[in-house]
Nucleic acid binder design. Structure first.
Lengths: 341, 341
DNA sequence: TTGTAGGCGTTATCAG
DNA sequence: CTGATAACGCCTACAA
């Protein structure tokens, strides 16, 4: 029965039970079994009960691959993020996956690192699986990929950024604006000397630029700066600070591209006898746990990464279900003054 | 052509190009196109070139759903972990996903939280997608699930634990043994007063038990202890220490179920005027970045989470490819003495 | 090296 | 409410 020409045998006894077996056992047509599983309302209760019993007895497990091929709905979403080693992305992926699972979808995870070509390749690869939706990081895409995504004709959410021309749905905020807000915050605190420790990832670059521009707008400049690799870590923060510690003014305000960097910078500064916040004020980004619960707690530009994932899931589900979904969700950010400023 | 009865139209212009279209364009049989894609060696170069051109011109994108149904290989692995909010699991998932992608597989991620029923449901759900392999966390499974997994007849890796009867492949270490090693380490340092801050997740419970038993074996007991929720965090470490700080002996050795907890405990201890390591020695678990780069750096029982993911991928791929794979990979742990002891 | 035939397991549609 | 039929798009096996 499984040894017909043309195909290898099924995986195992349980796995090879198919809808026709259940149908035969229950004395109904396969289609009725399918209905019991997918649209129970359209089956009479006695029939449904018989089918459920047959399913139970045979240990039937539906084959979603076959169902997907037939229905053209994979009930699967692909998510492509640079990495999940950083809370910046693990948080939204966690909430997004939770939310999608609750809605009956599974999430295929792909990690793109920080190279654009890599992401392009990932997108092509996952589209071959015909996902019902796509989660991407950032809003900067090549025209070719844009075209590909449009022709694939599926809902796409881009998270963590904004831009003039989103591919489809956008859940994020303006990073340059946030950098500027941090500069303003420091200026309001009376700072006149600034420094920055920012990673080279696309969004950190925007935050830095917003910060630098606003500092310049106030007629001031940076006294020290260092670029870090992406994704940046606590270690990068320590190394970075070590490299600029000699250039710091007696009272400097430091902007870091993430709380991890900020924590590293703070740790290193104290080892060099630089008092935080008296001699060095520090503001990070992300409101990660370490910033909240280290001592002194680190002032941060807060964005709720988990909320981004949740909102992305909402928007995607709405679009999949044909509802009119907002195509541009702006997530709020706020500066949370804590012990380092 | 796409409007035959029984099916909705294809997704988009690009998405609806199928292998027969490419075949017609290239003047070959569909099977030849399939070969160009999957077994290029078995197609003559001129023919292959014509096919590739046709693929390019039409923007053909293979449908892996259809291919999977036909070949009974999904080229997909499902990974089920409690959460990726903790480095404990985000690290192995990251390396595992990277490795599987490199081998041409995609990873479906499911998050089970810390409830066993939840994991059972997840397993059933992902098996419906007919993964070519499965990554699970921990080695404790119900007989029913064991049976299900065996009948599904696919390679399964269980990570982060060992046990007498693994389902299939195991990549981990003995947590009780590690707890005991930490106790021995403290004893060698001359400690006689012990405390513990351990989460309630299955593996942390084992580590704690190993620690407590070994302490007892030395004729000693804990002076203070607190159980924490899983997954435990820096905040839990702070809260936990606050609750036991009154019970600490003048010189106490504290074992924490993760470096996050250890960092929180250290932070809180210092705020209470308890010197680390003089009055309170601390050993964590996991060798997370924060433990390595905070100051003082935290002594930890090190296990390379990333390596676990990499070894799991190796073993799974070997098994999938029919090679004989080790079914039990013991990952080493070591205690790394740093500033908190 | 290439082609032909048929089926993978499910679901949309229409008929009863 | 239930059933019969015909795809979904690709690949295994075998033939030429």
């Amino acid at each position: 029965m499984n040894n017909l020409p043309g195909h290898p045998p099924g995986r195992g006894p349980g796995a090879s039970v198919k809808i026709t077996d259940v149908a035969a056992r229950a004395g109904v047509a396969p289609m009725t079994v399918s209905r019991v599983l997918n649209t129970p309302d359209r089956v009479s209760e006695p029939t449904a009960a018989r089918v459920r019993a047959a399913i139970e007895e045979l240990g039937y497990m539906p084959n979603l691959i076959a169902g997907g091929l037939s229905s053209r709905r994979s009930r699967m979403i692909a998510a492509i993020v640079p990495t999940i080693a950083s809370p910046m992305f693990s948080a939204p992926v966690q909430t997004f996956t939770d939310a999608m699972e609750q809605a009956g979808y599974h999430v295929m995870l792909a990690l793109s690192g920080y190279g654009a070509e890599s992401e392009d390749a990932q997108i092509r690869a996952v589209l071959a699986r015909r996902p019902d939706g796509l989660l991407l990081t950032g809003a900067q895409r090549s025209p070719a990929i844009r075209a590909l995504l449009r022709s694939a004709n599926l809902p796409v959410v881009e998270i963590w950024d904004t831009g003039p021309e989103p591919t489809d749905i956008l859940v994020g905020f303006d990073h340059a604006e946030m950098g500027a807000a941090v500069a303003d915050f420091f200026v309001r605190q009376g700072h006149t000397n600034f420094a920055a420790l920012c990673a080279r990832d696309p969004r950190a670059i925007l935050r830095r630029q917003g910060f630098v521009d606003r500092v310049a707008h106030h007629g001031l400049t940076l006294v020290a700066e260092r670029r870090l690799d992406a994704p940046s870590s606590i270690e990068d923060g320590r190394t970075g600070l070590r490299q600029i510690v000699g250039q710091l003014a007696p009272r400097t305000a430091l902007f870091c591209s993430s709380d991890l960097v900020a924590f590293g910078a703070m740790t290193e500064a104290r080892l060099h006898g630089v008092n935080v916040p008296e001699q060095l004020a520090i503001c990070g980004f992300g409101d990660f746990e370490v910033a909240r619960f280290c001592s002194p707690a680190i002032t941060t530009a807060r964005v709720d990464g988990g909320a981004i994932g949740a909102r992305a899931a909402e928007a995607l589900l709405a679009r999949i279900n044909g509802a009119t979904a907002e195509s541009r969700v702006l997530v709020p950010f706020e500066i949370i003054p804590r012990g380092t400023t």
